[in-house]
Amino acid sequence: MTTLTDAWHWLTDPAHWPGDDGIGHRLVQHLVLTVVCLAVSCLIALPVALVLGHLGKGGALAVNISNAGRAIPTFAVLVLLLLTPVGNWGEGPTVLALVLFAVPPLLTNAYVGMREVDRDVVRAARGMGMTGRQMLFRVELPLALPMIMNGVRIAAVQLVATATIAALAGGGGLGRIITAGFNLASTPQVVAGAILVAAFALIVEAIFETAERLAPHWARSAR
């Protein structure tokens, strides 16, 4: 229990909050990294998945890419990127690795969501004379939204986790508090950093959970 009290003291010590290595700056870094990378990954993955899902092509690729992503260690990719010329761009390797790991769940969920839209509904839409574009935006997209949002949620949580590992490879974010704690052999700091990271991840999860509860009935996943 003493470790937890020590960690609490570390967290509440005002000296640990300001400055470049302070908790405040690390929190902002983590948040910015997560939000920026989530936006970039969505911009890359969602249009591709929506078009592929609408056309019903490339399914094997879209589904398997997410399984393959699991086998590739985040940490290894980060270090590999760090040693390539990309490593000289400051946060470049981190951002690239984060996007790389957020794209597969987005792609897979959006694609599967699009394909799971009831074919009868799609046929009915076509029968009503809708064009392909109208079908995509007015029928398939709204019905696939719960699955797509589920993918965004998985990607967001994954981004928070990966941004933490980035600290092992010299990136910014909350993970730096943990790695600095290990270097100083300061268990309270390590635990304090871990509490911050875990809380961050759980808050992100909770935000998506709440958003789903508040969403209109049709946009909720059928549970």
């Binding site: 470790t3 937890l4 949580v157 928070v160 986790a161 990966t162 933490t164 590992i165 600290a167 092992l168 993970g175 943990i178 704690g181 290990f182 268990t187 390590v190 635990v191 950093g193 871990a194 509490i195 990271v197 875990a198 991840a201 759980l202 999860e205």
Partner: peptide, 17 residues
């Protein structure tokens, strides 16, 4: 589910004590 949400680096660190 909560356990799974905690990033791996944080999980290892929380178990350190």
């Amino acid at each position: 589910t909560i356990l799974y949400t905690i990033p791996s680096l944080a999980m290892f660190s929380l178990l350190l004590p």
